[in-house]
């Protein structure tokens, strides 16, 4: 890919910035909108990496469907700002949380620095994908040949979840 790394830094900065706003903002709807932006930034990074299918699905599923329901629920519950204001936290909690964050950050830095840089390329290099008809074609072919069992199992799992959700909703309806 001949796309400049500048784009990576832009999207990464956006992702980090909006992630911070997700946890720091006091307004629940604002938090949810920030989370949508985080998903967008991720989709941008996927697109830079040449994984257009994942980028499109990221926006379609997470930003377009799941977050809409989140915001729906937040709006319906009418969660206002005071209910998110826990007051000032104890100084000990702040120090403890800060230390844990620092340790986690150091671990990540160490892990990334120590891991070998030259990971051998797998079967699906960008060229190979391009040759066999693009992302969508390759992923769908794999899904319906090599990974048919896990794919179908996931579908059954989702179906079970849907049936369960309907069952729970119906029971509540019956009581009233």
């Amino acid at each position: 890919m001949d796309i400049s790394p500048v784009f990576f830094y832009v999207f990464a900065a956006l992702a980090i910035g909006f992630s911070l706003s997700v946890i720091l903002k006091k307004n629940p709807v604002g938090n949810a909108f920030s989370l949508v932006m985080v998903f967008f930034a991720f989709a941008g990074i996927y697109a830079i990496l040449g994984a257009h299918l994942i980028a499109a699905l990221q926006v379609l599923v997470y930003a377009g469907a799941i977050m809409v329901l989140f915001i729906f629920v937040i709006m319906l519950l009418n969660a206002d700002e005071p209910s998110f204001d826990m007051g000032r936290s104890h100084i000990g909690i702040k120090i403890g949380a800060g230390t844990l964050c620092a340790i986690l950050f150091c671990t990540f830095v160490w892990a990334i620095k120590e891991s070998p840089i030259n990971i051998p390329a797998g079967r699906f290099t960008p060229e190979a994908i391009q040759a066999s008809g693009g992302n969508t074609q390759v992923v769908s072919e794999l899904m319906f040949s090599e990974y048919i069992l896990p794919f179908e199992l996931t579908s059954v799992l989702l179906l079970a979840a849907i049936v369960g959700a309907v069952a729970i909703a119906k029971r509540k309806l019956g009581k009233n």
Partner: peptide, 18 residues
């Protein structure tokens, strides 16, 4: 001419709701 053409349309169209 995106490889994901239709999916792109759906993902963008689903954003209008925001």
């Amino acid at each position: 001419d995106l490889n994901v053409g239709l999916l792109y349309i759906f993902s963008v169209a689903s954003l209008g709701v925001y």
